[in-house]
Structures are given as structure tokens and as C-alpha cells.
Nucleic acid binder design. Structure first.
Lengths: 129, 129
DNA sequence: AATAAATGTTAGGAATCCTTACATTTATTT
DNA sequence: AAATAAATGTAAGGATTCCTAACATTTATT
């Protein structure tokens, strides 16, 4: 069984993830609402979080504490998914992109040096190996 | 945070453990009743299983399939906790010990070569690293 | 001051899990 | 073969956890 598969297995209920991340249910649901995570669901519609979900939540928390807003975090995640290292992914996109980029840059600038949190792959590894 | 601590963190609810082990809730509760596992409890008295709990359940299942009964499995676990490799831990114990040992030996004998399943540390590693 | 972003709080309902009790199956013993 | 024991199934009633939705509050930005 691949590592990628394992890290995406739906395992944890809301209560455990709240403890693991020290986030409120409201916060976690809000981040999902904003497409920052997409936890699986049980048959009865209960959220089931994977290791990767928890990792993401920890990173969201870290970035928020650094002053990045949800739009910025979304951008950071999309950036990574495209396998980019640059901070400028604005070519070949929608009109509002320039503004978005500007906004992000400004926030990241005043949030202190960027790149540290987003480079921490696997925050959850503090809990598990 | 130590590895031992992590593997003992209460994380999984009953439903997930059922899927992970392919055991029924009845079976899992019965094994707890017989002191083969001791999952933690939530504030509201719900079982919360750790990695080690799931590992144990997988081993219980394996041993049961080999014909070992619960008493035998309990013996195997106690044996390991004492850090023994021998199959003869009957000195310095209660009167019924000799019978127990005899019983176990018989079962293990007819269950095929012993030692394989109990040596598999971390069955759950098939799912996680 | 007004707006927006992020989070808190509450309510009502649904899903999951709890214990307890009794039934069933399978193996062992007499 | 009948009786006993071990392991599991099943069902009921109740408690816990989680769900969505709505409205309130806090904080930052405009």
C-alpha cells in the first residue's frame, strides 16, 4: 500500500482533530467551506480526516498566525500543487489574478519572511512517524 | 514526543477500527472484556483506540485464525510484556498455571508453527508508516 | 463608520457508540 | 449424544458526538 494512499485514508473524527490541531470545529468547518481542506465523509455524513488533512490544518493555523488570510493560504496551496517554487503564478489566469497576487505579496511581506511554514512538510510528524 | 507515546495516543473511533481490522464491534468489545486490549475513553465514554490497540487487534485476529483461543492470546501478550522468548513462563505463578501452559502448548502445536504471528510487530504498518 | 473576514454560540436533528440482555454457532467435555 | 463453554450475532434504549443553519461577536481593512 502506497504511502500516499495511507496518508489520505479517512481516519479521524472531528473531536480528535480538534485536539490534535487545537482548532475549534467552527474553524475547521470554515476552512473546508473555503476549499482549504476536503475531508472525506462517513456514510452518515460525518467528516473523516486523513493525516494529510491534519497536516494541512496545522499549516493553515501556522500561516494564519503569520497574518496570511485564507485567500493567501489557498494561493500557497495551489502554488504547491502546481509544483512551483516561485511566488509569481499569475500568468495564464483570470483578470483578478494581478490583484490577488499583489494582495498576497503584501501580506506575505508584512507577515515576516515567507516560505518557512509552507516548507514544513508534515507538521503532523511531530505527533507520528 | 516519543514514538511510544505517539503509538498510544487515543485517536480512532470504533467505526474506523472496525474497517481497519475487519472485526465486528461485538468482537472488539469482547476482546476488551477479556483484557486483551484497553482502549482509552472519551469524556462521554466512547472508546478511542490507539495505533497499538489496532495492532493488537490485528494480531488477535491472526492468532484466532490460527486456532489460538483468547486465553492463549492473553498468555502470548503477557509473555511478550515480560520480555521473554521462551514458550514456558510457568514458574512463579498460580496453581492453574501448569494446566494453562499445557493447554496453550497443545493449541499452539495444532495451530501450526507458532511464533510467526506474534513476531510480526506492527501489523498496522501495512497501512501506515 | 462601514464593510469584510474570521470565529463564537446556539438550536434542532441525525449518526455513532454505549451497555445490557438474550440468541446462535461452534468446539470441547462428559 | 447431551451438556457446557467460548465466541459471535442481534436488538433495544439511551447517551454522546457531529451535522447544518442561523445569528452574534470580534478584528481588521477600507
Amino acid at each position: 500500500m502506497g504511502d500516499q494512499v495511507r496518508r489520505n485514508m479517512p481516519l479521524f473524527p472531528m473531536g480528535i482533530v480538534m485536539q490534535l490541531t487545537e482548532l475549534s470545529a467552527r474553524q475547521i468547518r470554515y476552512y473546508e467551506e473555503n476549499k482549504l481542506i476536503t475531508p472525506a465523509r462517513s456514510e452518515g455524513n460525518r467528516r473523516l480526516f486523513s493525516f494529510n488533512d491534519v497536516d494541512r490544518l496545522l499549516e493553515i493555523k501556522s500561516l494564519l498566525e503569520r497574518g496570511v488570510n485564507l485567500a493567501g493560504i489557498r494561493e500557497v496551496f495551489e502554488m504547491r500543487e502546481r509544483g512551483m517554487q516561485t511566488l509569481h503564478p499569475y500568468y495564464r489566469k483570470e483578470p483578478t489574478e494581478a490583484e490577488l497576487h499583489n494582495h498576497l505579496k503584501k501580506e506575505l511581506y508584512q507577515a515576516g519572511r515567507y516560505g518557512k511554514a509552507s516548507l514544513i512538510q508534515g507538521e503532523l510528524s511531530r505527533f507520528f512517524n
